[in-house]
Nucleic acid binder design. Sequence first.
DNA 1: GACAATACCTGGTGATGAGTAGGTGACGTT
DNA 2: AACGTCACCTACTCATCACCAGGTATTGTC
Lengths: 190, 190
Amino acid sequence: MSRPRGSDRRDGIIRAAFDVLAERGYRGTSLAAVAERVGLTQQGLMHYFPTKENLLAAVLETRDQWDLLNFTRSKDPSAIGATELAELVDYNATRPGIVRTYTVLSADSVTEDHPAREYFHDRYARVRQLVAQMLERYADDLPAGLTPAQIAPIAVAVLDGLQLQWLLDPDEVDMPQDFRNFLALLGIKT
Amino acid sequence: MSRPRGSDRRDGIIRAAFDVLAERGYRGTSLAAVAERVGLTQQGLMHYFPTKENLLAAVLETRDQWDLLNFTRSKDPSAIGATELAELVDYNATRPGIVRTYTVLSADSVTEDHPAREYFHDRYARVRQLVAQMLERYADDLPAGLTPAQIAPIAVAVLDGLQLQWLLDPDEVDMPQDFRNFLALLGIKT
DNA sequence: GACAATACCTGGTGATGAGTAGGTGACGTT
DNA sequence: AACGTCACCTACTCATCACCAGGTATTGTC
Protein backbone atom coordinates (compact mmCIF):
# COMPACT_ATOMS: atom_id res chain seq x y z
CA MET A 1 0.00 0.00 0.00
CA SER A 2 2.14 2.83 -1.22
CA ARG A 3 1.19 6.39 -0.48
CA PRO A 4 0.80 8.59 -3.53
CA ARG A 5 3.93 10.57 -4.13
CA GLY A 6 3.81 14.30 -3.59
CA SER A 7 3.19 15.45 -7.11
CA ASP A 8 0.61 12.76 -7.75
CA ARG A 9 -1.24 13.87 -4.68
CA ARG A 10 -1.08 17.46 -5.82
CA ASP A 11 -2.57 16.46 -9.14
CA GLY A 12 -5.35 14.61 -7.42
CA ILE A 13 -6.13 17.58 -5.23
CA ILE A 14 -6.20 19.93 -8.19
CA ARG A 15 -8.47 17.62 -10.10
CA ALA A 16 -10.85 17.37 -7.16
CA ALA A 17 -10.74 21.11 -6.57
CA PHE A 18 -11.58 21.67 -10.22
CA ASP A 19 -14.71 19.58 -9.80
CA VAL A 20 -15.83 21.13 -6.56
CA LEU A 21 -15.25 24.59 -7.99
CA ALA A 22 -17.58 23.73 -10.85
CA GLU A 23 -20.20 22.48 -8.43
CA ARG A 24 -20.16 25.30 -5.91
CA GLY A 25 -18.17 28.25 -7.25
CA TYR A 26 -15.21 29.76 -5.45
CA ARG A 27 -16.96 31.09 -2.39
CA GLY A 28 -19.07 27.98 -2.11
CA THR A 29 -16.08 25.68 -2.19
CA SER A 30 -14.64 24.56 1.12
CA LEU A 31 -11.21 23.10 1.52
CA ALA A 32 -12.76 20.32 3.59
CA ALA A 33 -15.00 19.29 0.70
CA VAL A 34 -12.05 19.11 -1.66
CA ALA A 35 -9.98 17.22 0.89
CA GLU A 36 -12.70 14.68 1.50
CA ARG A 37 -12.89 13.95 -2.20
CA VAL A 38 -9.26 12.91 -2.32
CA GLY A 39 -9.42 11.08 1.00
CA LEU A 40 -7.53 13.60 3.06
CA THR A 41 -8.33 15.77 6.00
CA GLN A 42 -8.56 19.47 5.39
CA GLN A 43 -5.23 19.93 7.14
CA GLY A 44 -3.66 17.25 5.02
CA LEU A 45 -4.68 19.26 1.99
CA MET A 46 -3.23 22.41 3.47
CA HIS A 47 0.10 20.69 3.61
CA TYR A 48 0.13 21.05 -0.16
CA PHE A 49 -1.79 24.29 -0.59
CA PRO A 50 -1.40 26.58 2.39
CA THR A 51 -4.38 28.79 1.53
CA LYS A 52 -7.57 28.53 -0.46
CA GLU A 53 -6.41 31.24 -2.80
CA ASN A 54 -3.27 29.29 -3.40
CA LEU A 55 -5.30 26.27 -4.41
CA LEU A 56 -7.39 28.29 -6.81
CA ALA A 57 -4.27 29.67 -8.44
CA ALA A 58 -2.90 26.17 -8.86
CA VAL A 59 -6.15 24.98 -10.41
CA LEU A 60 -6.21 27.87 -12.86
CA GLU A 61 -2.60 27.37 -13.88
CA THR A 62 -2.71 23.64 -14.22
CA ARG A 63 -6.06 23.09 -15.78
CA ASP A 64 -5.46 25.60 -18.49
CA GLN A 65 -4.42 22.66 -20.58
CA TRP A 66 -8.00 21.97 -21.51
CA ASP A 67 -8.94 25.27 -22.94
CA LEU A 68 -8.70 27.30 -26.05
CA LEU A 69 -5.34 28.77 -25.24
CA ASN A 70 -3.57 25.50 -24.74
CA PHE A 71 -5.54 23.89 -27.47
CA THR A 72 -3.51 26.11 -29.70
CA ARG A 73 -0.36 26.61 -27.73
CA SER A 74 1.72 24.07 -29.59
CA LYS A 75 0.56 25.31 -32.95
CA ASP A 76 1.00 28.51 -34.80
CA PRO A 77 -2.18 30.51 -34.10
CA SER A 78 -2.57 31.46 -37.70
CA ALA A 79 -2.17 27.82 -38.72
CA ILE A 80 -5.40 26.82 -37.05
CA GLY A 81 -8.76 27.81 -38.37
CA ALA A 82 -12.46 27.63 -37.87
CA THR A 83 -12.57 23.87 -38.29
CA GLU A 84 -10.33 23.34 -35.32
CA LEU A 85 -12.31 25.84 -33.29
CA ALA A 86 -15.56 24.05 -34.09
CA GLU A 87 -13.92 20.81 -33.06
CA LEU A 88 -12.95 22.34 -29.74
CA VAL A 89 -16.61 23.15 -29.20
CA ASP A 90 -17.49 19.55 -30.05
CA TYR A 91 -15.00 18.40 -27.51
CA ASN A 92 -16.27 20.77 -24.86
CA ALA A 93 -19.78 19.47 -25.42
CA THR A 94 -18.57 16.11 -24.10
CA ARG A 95 -17.00 17.63 -21.00
CA PRO A 96 -19.63 19.56 -19.08
CA GLY A 97 -17.49 19.55 -15.95
CA ILE A 98 -14.72 21.53 -17.55
CA VAL A 99 -17.09 23.94 -19.20
CA ARG A 100 -18.91 24.48 -15.97
CA THR A 101 -15.78 25.28 -14.04
CA TYR A 102 -14.74 28.01 -16.43
CA THR A 103 -18.23 29.40 -16.84
CA VAL A 104 -18.82 29.55 -13.12
CA LEU A 105 -15.39 30.88 -12.22
CA SER A 106 -15.19 33.49 -14.93
CA ALA A 107 -18.50 35.04 -13.90
CA ASP A 108 -17.53 34.60 -10.27
CA SER A 109 -14.44 36.63 -10.94
CA VAL A 110 -16.30 39.86 -11.71
CA THR A 111 -17.27 39.79 -8.08
CA GLU A 112 -15.61 42.10 -5.54
CA ASP A 113 -12.07 41.22 -4.41
CA HIS A 114 -12.11 38.00 -6.32
CA PRO A 115 -8.68 36.37 -6.48
CA ALA A 116 -9.15 35.21 -10.06
CA ARG A 117 -10.19 38.55 -11.45
CA GLU A 118 -6.84 39.46 -12.94
CA TYR A 119 -6.45 35.98 -14.29
CA PHE A 120 -9.66 36.17 -16.26
CA HIS A 121 -9.08 39.74 -17.32
CA ASP A 122 -5.77 38.78 -18.87
CA ARG A 123 -7.07 35.53 -20.19
CA TYR A 124 -9.86 37.14 -22.16
CA ALA A 125 -7.49 39.67 -23.63
CA ARG A 126 -5.29 36.85 -24.81
CA VAL A 127 -8.16 34.78 -26.15
CA ARG A 128 -9.52 37.73 -28.12
CA GLN A 129 -6.12 38.28 -29.62
CA LEU A 130 -5.77 34.63 -30.48
CA VAL A 131 -9.16 34.48 -32.17
CA ALA A 132 -8.36 37.64 -34.09
CA GLN A 133 -5.18 36.02 -35.38
CA MET A 134 -7.14 32.96 -36.36
CA LEU A 135 -9.61 35.05 -38.28
CA GLU A 136 -6.87 36.73 -40.26
CA ARG A 137 -6.98 34.01 -42.87
CA TYR A 138 -10.60 34.89 -43.61
CA ALA A 139 -9.99 38.62 -43.40
CA ASP A 140 -10.82 39.38 -47.01
CA ASP A 141 -14.16 37.58 -47.00
CA LEU A 142 -15.60 38.73 -43.69
CA PRO A 143 -19.11 40.17 -43.97
CA ALA A 144 -20.13 43.80 -43.46
CA GLY A 145 -16.57 44.96 -43.89
CA LEU A 146 -15.67 43.89 -40.37
CA THR A 147 -12.11 43.16 -39.37
CA PRO A 148 -10.84 40.16 -37.41
CA ALA A 149 -10.20 42.42 -34.43
CA GLN A 150 -13.81 43.56 -34.50
CA ILE A 151 -15.21 40.08 -34.76
CA ALA A 152 -12.98 38.50 -32.12
CA PRO A 153 -14.88 39.77 -29.05
CA ILE A 154 -18.14 38.68 -30.68
CA ALA A 155 -16.83 35.21 -31.41
CA VAL A 156 -15.54 34.86 -27.87
CA ALA A 157 -18.90 36.04 -26.56
CA VAL A 158 -20.68 33.42 -28.65
CA LEU A 159 -18.42 30.73 -27.24
CA ASP A 160 -19.09 31.77 -23.66
CA GLY A 161 -22.73 32.60 -24.04
CA LEU A 162 -23.55 29.32 -25.72
CA GLN A 163 -21.81 27.46 -22.92
CA LEU A 164 -24.03 29.07 -20.35
CA GLN A 165 -27.22 28.32 -22.24
CA TRP A 166 -26.05 24.79 -22.91
CA LEU A 167 -25.23 24.15 -19.27
CA LEU A 168 -28.67 25.35 -18.25
CA ASP A 169 -30.48 23.31 -20.88
CA PRO A 170 -28.36 20.73 -22.68
CA ASP A 171 -31.37 19.13 -24.34
CA GLU A 172 -32.65 22.32 -25.84
CA VAL A 173 -29.37 23.98 -26.82
CA ASP A 174 -27.18 22.29 -29.40
CA MET A 175 -23.97 24.14 -28.69
CA PRO A 176 -21.80 22.64 -31.45
CA GLN A 177 -24.44 23.18 -34.09
CA ASP A 178 -25.15 26.71 -32.91
CA PHE A 179 -21.49 27.55 -33.10
CA ARG A 180 -21.26 26.21 -36.64
CA ASN A 181 -24.23 28.36 -37.51
CA PHE A 182 -22.33 31.32 -36.18
CA LEU A 183 -19.37 30.46 -38.38
CA ALA A 184 -21.77 30.29 -41.31
CA LEU A 185 -22.86 33.78 -40.40
CA LEU A 186 -19.25 34.82 -40.86
CA GLY A 187 -19.28 33.22 -44.27
CA ILE A 188 -16.96 30.49 -43.07
CA LYS A 189 -17.68 26.93 -44.13
CA THR A 190 -16.53 24.02 -42.01
CA MET B 1 -38.99 60.75 11.96
CA SER B 2 -41.36 58.28 10.40
CA ARG B 3 -40.37 54.73 9.97
CA PRO B 4 -40.48 53.45 6.41
CA ARG B 5 -43.68 51.65 5.70
CA GLY B 6 -43.61 47.94 5.14
CA SER B 7 -43.57 47.85 1.39
CA ASP B 8 -41.05 50.68 1.15
CA ARG B 9 -38.78 48.75 3.46
CA ARG B 10 -39.18 45.67 1.33
CA ASP B 11 -38.18 47.63 -1.73
CA GLY B 12 -35.12 48.95 0.03
CA ILE B 13 -34.08 45.49 1.09
CA ILE B 14 -34.52 44.11 -2.40
CA ARG B 15 -32.52 46.95 -3.86
CA ALA B 16 -29.71 46.37 -1.36
CA ALA B 17 -29.80 42.62 -1.90
CA PHE B 18 -29.54 43.18 -5.63
CA ASP B 19 -26.35 45.13 -5.10
CA VAL B 20 -24.78 42.73 -2.66
CA LEU B 21 -25.64 39.82 -4.94
CA ALA B 22 -23.74 41.54 -7.72
CA GLU B 23 -20.77 42.09 -5.48
CA ARG B 24 -20.49 38.67 -3.91
CA GLY B 25 -22.71 36.18 -5.75
CA TYR B 26 -25.40 34.14 -4.05
CA ARG B 27 -23.24 32.01 -1.81
CA GLY B 28 -21.04 34.96 -0.94
CA THR B 29 -23.96 37.11 0.10
CA SER B 30 -24.85 37.17 3.77
CA LEU B 31 -28.15 38.36 5.10
CA ALA B 32 -26.27 40.43 7.64
CA ALA B 33 -24.47 42.32 4.88
CA VAL B 34 -27.73 43.13 3.14
CA ALA B 35 -29.37 44.12 6.41
CA GLU B 36 -26.53 46.45 7.33
CA ARG B 37 -26.89 48.22 4.02
CA VAL B 38 -30.48 49.16 4.78
CA GLY B 39 -29.79 49.93 8.43
CA LEU B 40 -31.39 46.86 9.91
CA THR B 41 -30.19 43.90 11.90
CA GLN B 42 -30.14 40.57 10.21
CA GLN B 43 -33.21 39.53 12.16
CA GLY B 44 -34.97 42.70 11.21
CA LEU B 45 -34.47 41.71 7.62
CA MET B 46 -35.74 38.23 8.31
CA HIS B 47 -38.98 39.74 9.44
CA TYR B 48 -39.58 40.52 5.78
CA PHE B 49 -37.82 37.60 4.15
CA PRO B 50 -37.77 34.52 6.36
CA THR B 51 -35.01 32.76 4.43
CA LYS B 52 -32.15 33.65 2.15
CA GLU B 53 -33.71 31.73 -0.68
CA ASN B 54 -36.87 33.69 -0.20
CA LEU B 55 -34.98 36.93 -0.56
CA LEU B 56 -33.31 35.75 -3.74
CA ALA B 57 -36.66 34.83 -5.21
CA ALA B 58 -38.01 38.27 -4.39
CA VAL B 59 -35.00 39.94 -5.98
CA LEU B 60 -35.37 37.90 -9.14
CA GLU B 61 -39.07 38.60 -9.43
CA THR B 62 -38.97 42.27 -8.67
CA ARG B 63 -35.88 43.33 -10.49
CA ASP B 64 -36.89 41.68 -13.68
CA GLN B 65 -38.17 45.06 -14.67
CA TRP B 66 -34.74 46.05 -15.85
CA ASP B 67 -34.12 43.31 -18.29
CA LEU B 68 -34.83 42.31 -21.81
CA LEU B 69 -38.08 40.61 -21.00
CA ASN B 70 -39.66 43.56 -19.33
CA PHE B 71 -38.07 45.92 -21.73
CA THR B 72 -40.47 44.42 -24.18
CA ARG B 73 -43.32 43.33 -22.00
CA SER B 74 -45.56 46.22 -22.72
CA LYS B 75 -44.95 46.05 -26.42
CA ASP B 76 -45.75 43.51 -29.02
CA PRO B 77 -42.56 41.46 -29.43
CA SER B 78 -42.71 41.61 -33.17
CA ALA B 79 -43.18 45.36 -33.03
CA ILE B 80 -39.71 45.93 -31.62
CA GLY B 81 -36.61 45.41 -33.68
CA ALA B 82 -32.88 45.50 -33.70
CA THR B 83 -32.74 49.23 -33.01
CA GLU B 84 -34.51 48.82 -29.71
CA LEU B 85 -32.31 45.88 -28.82
CA ALA B 86 -29.19 47.90 -29.52
CA GLU B 87 -30.58 50.67 -27.36
CA LEU B 88 -31.09 48.23 -24.54
CA VAL B 89 -27.41 47.37 -24.78
CA ASP B 90 -26.58 51.08 -24.69
CA TYR B 91 -28.65 51.39 -21.58
CA ASN B 92 -27.05 48.37 -19.94
CA ALA B 93 -23.64 49.86 -20.59
CA THR B 94 -24.57 52.67 -18.21
CA ARG B 95 -25.72 50.27 -15.50
CA PRO B 96 -22.85 47.93 -14.63
CA GLY B 97 -24.50 46.98 -11.34
CA ILE B 98 -27.53 45.49 -13.01
CA VAL B 99 -25.47 43.72 -15.62
CA ARG B 100 -23.22 42.32 -12.98
CA THR B 101 -26.04 40.90 -10.93
CA TYR B 102 -27.49 38.98 -13.82
CA THR B 103 -24.13 37.85 -15.15
CA VAL B 104 -22.99 36.63 -11.75
CA LEU B 105 -26.27 35.01 -10.79
CA SER B 106 -26.93 33.31 -14.10
CA ALA B 107 -23.54 31.61 -14.06
CA ASP B 108 -23.95 30.94 -10.36
CA SER B 109 -27.15 29.13 -11.12
CA VAL B 110 -25.51 26.29 -13.05
CA THR B 111 -23.99 25.32 -9.75
CA GLU B 112 -25.31 22.33 -7.78
CA ASP B 113 -28.62 22.76 -5.95
CA HIS B 114 -28.81 26.42 -6.81
CA PRO B 115 -32.19 27.94 -5.98
CA ALA B 116 -32.21 30.11 -9.11
CA ARG B 117 -31.49 27.34 -11.54
CA GLU B 118 -35.03 26.83 -12.71
CA TYR B 119 -35.54 30.55 -12.91
CA PHE B 120 -32.66 31.03 -15.32
CA HIS B 121 -33.47 27.89 -17.26
CA ASP B 122 -36.95 29.19 -17.95
CA ARG B 123 -35.79 32.72 -18.44
CA TYR B 124 -33.35 31.80 -21.19
CA ALA B 125 -35.96 29.74 -22.96
CA ARG B 126 -38.26 32.75 -22.93
CA VAL B 127 -35.56 35.17 -24.04
CA ARG B 128 -34.58 32.95 -26.94
CA GLN B 129 -38.16 32.78 -28.03
CA LEU B 130 -38.55 36.52 -27.74
CA VAL B 131 -35.46 37.22 -29.78
CA ALA B 132 -36.58 34.73 -32.39
CA GLN B 133 -39.88 36.60 -32.68
CA MET B 134 -38.03 39.86 -33.00
CA LEU B 135 -35.91 38.47 -35.78
CA GLU B 136 -38.94 37.38 -37.76
CA ARG B 137 -39.16 40.74 -39.45
CA TYR B 138 -35.71 40.19 -40.94
CA ALA B 139 -36.37 36.54 -41.73
CA ASP B 140 -36.07 36.87 -45.49
CA ASP B 141 -32.75 38.67 -45.46
CA LEU B 142 -30.88 36.65 -42.87
CA PRO B 143 -27.46 35.41 -44.05
CA ALA B 144 -26.46 31.83 -44.77
CA GLY B 145 -30.08 30.77 -45.01
CA LEU B 146 -30.42 30.76 -41.24
CA THR B 147 -33.78 31.07 -39.54
CA PRO B 148 -34.68 33.35 -36.63
CA ALA B 149 -34.92 30.32 -34.37
CA GLN B 150 -31.40 29.31 -35.32
CA ILE B 151 -29.97 32.74 -34.74
CA ALA B 152 -31.75 33.45 -31.47
CA PRO B 153 -29.45 31.40 -29.21
CA ILE B 154 -26.45 32.96 -30.90
CA ALA B 155 -27.76 36.47 -30.40
CA VAL B 156 -28.51 35.77 -26.76
CA ALA B 157 -25.03 34.32 -26.37
CA VAL B 158 -23.52 37.48 -27.83
CA LEU B 159 -25.49 39.60 -25.40
CA ASP B 160 -24.32 37.58 -22.40
CA GLY B 161 -20.80 36.96 -23.54
CA LEU B 162 -20.17 40.61 -24.28
CA GLN B 163 -21.44 41.55 -20.86
CA LEU B 164 -18.90 39.31 -19.20
CA GLN B 165 -16.01 40.65 -21.25
CA TRP B 166 -17.18 44.19 -20.69
CA LEU B 167 -17.44 43.72 -16.94
CA LEU B 168 -13.92 42.36 -16.83
CA ASP B 169 -12.47 45.10 -18.98
CA PRO B 170 -14.78 48.06 -19.63
CA ASP B 171 -12.00 50.13 -21.18
CA GLU B 172 -11.05 47.54 -23.70
CA VAL B 173 -14.45 46.17 -24.63
CA ASP B 174 -16.96 48.47 -26.27
CA MET B 175 -20.08 46.44 -25.66
CA PRO B 176 -22.60 48.61 -27.52
CA GLN B 177 -20.38 48.92 -30.56
CA ASP B 178 -19.57 45.22 -30.57
CA PHE B 179 -23.25 44.41 -30.47
CA ARG B 180 -23.96 46.69 -33.39
CA ASN B 181 -21.20 44.95 -35.26
CA PHE B 182 -22.95 41.69 -34.58
CA LEU B 183 -26.17 43.07 -36.00
CA ALA B 184 -24.22 44.15 -39.07
CA LEU B 185 -23.09 40.57 -39.36
CA LEU B 186 -26.74 39.64 -39.60
CA GLY B 187 -27.18 42.16 -42.34
CA ILE B 188 -29.24 44.38 -40.08
CA LYS B 189 -28.61 48.09 -40.14
CA THR B 190 -29.37 50.26 -37.14
C1' DG C 1 21.04 2.55 10.95
C1' DA C 2 21.10 7.71 11.58
C1' DC C 3 18.83 11.77 10.01
C1' DA C 4 16.16 14.81 7.67
C1' DA C 5 12.50 15.73 4.93
C1' DT C 6 7.93 14.53 3.56
C1' DA C 7 3.17 13.41 4.29
C1' DC C 8 0.08 13.48 6.79
C1' DC C 9 -2.84 13.69 11.50
C1' DT C 10 -5.31 15.46 16.07
C1' DG C 11 -6.85 19.29 18.21
C1' DG C 12 -7.58 23.58 18.56
C1' DT C 13 -9.28 29.08 17.45
C1' DG C 14 -12.10 32.83 16.29
C1' DA C 15 -15.15 34.42 12.77
C1' DT C 16 -19.20 34.05 10.40
C1' DG C 17 -23.10 31.71 8.46
C1' DA C 18 -28.49 30.85 8.45
C1' DG C 19 -32.08 30.35 11.24
C1' DT C 20 -34.94 30.22 16.00
C1' DA C 21 -37.29 32.04 20.21
C1' DG C 22 -39.20 35.37 22.35
C1' DG C 23 -39.54 39.71 23.35
C1' DT C 24 -40.82 45.33 23.16
C1' DG C 25 -42.61 49.46 21.49
C1' DA C 26 -45.21 52.10 18.03
C1' DC C 27 -49.39 52.41 15.46
C1' DG C 28 -54.20 51.88 13.59
C1' DT C 29 -58.67 50.47 14.62
C1' DT C 30 -62.63 50.32 17.15
C1' DA D 1 -58.80 53.46 26.14
C1' DA D 2 -58.26 48.69 24.94
C1' DC D 3 -56.43 45.46 21.43
C1' DG D 4 -54.17 43.50 17.88
C1' DT D 5 -50.85 43.84 14.29
C1' DC D 6 -46.68 45.34 12.46
C1' DA D 7 -41.76 46.44 12.72
C1' DC D 8 -37.99 45.38 14.64
C1' DC D 9 -34.77 43.98 18.45
C1' DT D 10 -31.72 41.02 21.83
C1' DA D 11 -30.08 36.82 22.61
C1' DC D 12 -29.36 32.72 21.44
C1' DT D 13 -28.08 27.77 18.65
C1' DC D 14 -25.43 25.07 15.92
C1' DA D 15 -22.88 24.29 11.81
C1' DT D 16 -19.11 25.52 9.00
C1' DC D 17 -15.33 28.19 7.56
C1' DA D 18 -10.15 29.19 6.83
C1' DC D 19 -6.32 28.68 9.21
C1' DC D 20 -2.72 27.68 13.19
C1' DA D 21 0.22 24.70 16.40
C1' DG D 22 2.30 20.88 17.14
C1' DG D 23 2.62 16.01 16.76
C1' DT D 24 3.81 11.26 14.49
C1' DA D 25 4.68 7.88 11.06
C1' DT D 26 6.71 6.96 6.73
C1' DT D 27 10.17 7.55 3.27
C1' DG D 28 14.50 8.56 0.93
C1' DT D 29 19.60 9.40 1.53
C1' DC D 30 23.97 8.49 3.07
